[in-house]
Design a protein around this nucleic acid. Structure first.
Lengths: 129, 129
DNA sequence: CCTTGACTTGGAGCGCACTCCAAGTTTGTA
DNA sequence: TACAAACTTGGAGTGCGCTCCAAGTCAAGG
């Protein structure tokens, strides 16, 4: 349902990313819809680059209840900012890839693969890590 | 100049991500501005999630000269598409984080942390991997 | 009931991208 | 010239996030 492998599901549970997945009489996991949506949210955090230990921290705070809402809010705020940063970084990288493609489409195949246009050179210099 | 560690620089050269970095008489590396811009471009590819083996493949094609421009173009086109995909995925994840934050700001601290609003639930369901 | 396949656990193994180390060489300053 | 700091190499080690394995248990169709 989420595209995650059974092994990863087990790993996430062991790692504390999923709280209290219940079992049937035989000991097999039964995922509730809350488990499922919890997992889906965890996957959003993972997809956007939050490391597993930080997701665990968040999930622990959820378990601890209302007293931790402030901490959780600030975690999500910080993470939201990081996502916005990633997006703008991605946009800058995409611009450079697109300028390269433009060069290829113009049939430019310069001696110097990278210094060939001022446009590209300045883009490359402009966005230092 | 690029924020990359000396070790990573050496690793990238060994891995074939940087072509022909020259040495001085003593054998120490002397990075030309072409090396530098090449590295900067490599870093853009890496930042946007291109694995090292694919970057190497691209760099090899560059070394092979004009005969490979078509292949290089299609690599970059594919990669550009992947970046655009990443960006829209990030946007969807950000939306979910922001909805969660809204909930926190409204003082909602529901029994069920994830199913609490239809808005969030539908967002979570809508964006399966 | 019996078989087949899916599940359970703890723990080992893997691929990636670095990151560090040791032993030796080169460089730049006093 | 002496010496510390920065470089060279090959190779080992690390951290992350899974992924696989073995040995055993459970579930469902014939």
């Amino acid at each position: 349902m989420t595209g995650v492998s059974a092994d990863t599901l087990r790993y996430y549970e062991k790692a504390g990313l999923m709280d209290g997945v219940s079992r049937n009489v035989g000991g097999h996991r039964r995922f509730s819809s809350a488990d499922l949506n919890g997992l889906r949210f965890v996957l959003k955090l993972r997809m956007t680059g939050m490391p597993i230990r930080d997701v665990r921290r968040y999930v622990e705070l959820v378990r601890q209840g209302d007293a931790t809402t402030d901490q959780r809010r600030s975690i999500l705020q910080g993470h939201g900012d990081r996502i916005r940063q990633q997006m703008s970084e991605l946009a800058r990288c995409l611009e450079i890839v697109d300028v390269k493609l433009e060069m290829y489409d113009l049939g430019l195949s310069p001696m110097d693969e990278h210094d060939c246009t001022k446009k590209l050179a300045s883009l490359l210099e402009g966005t230092l890590k």
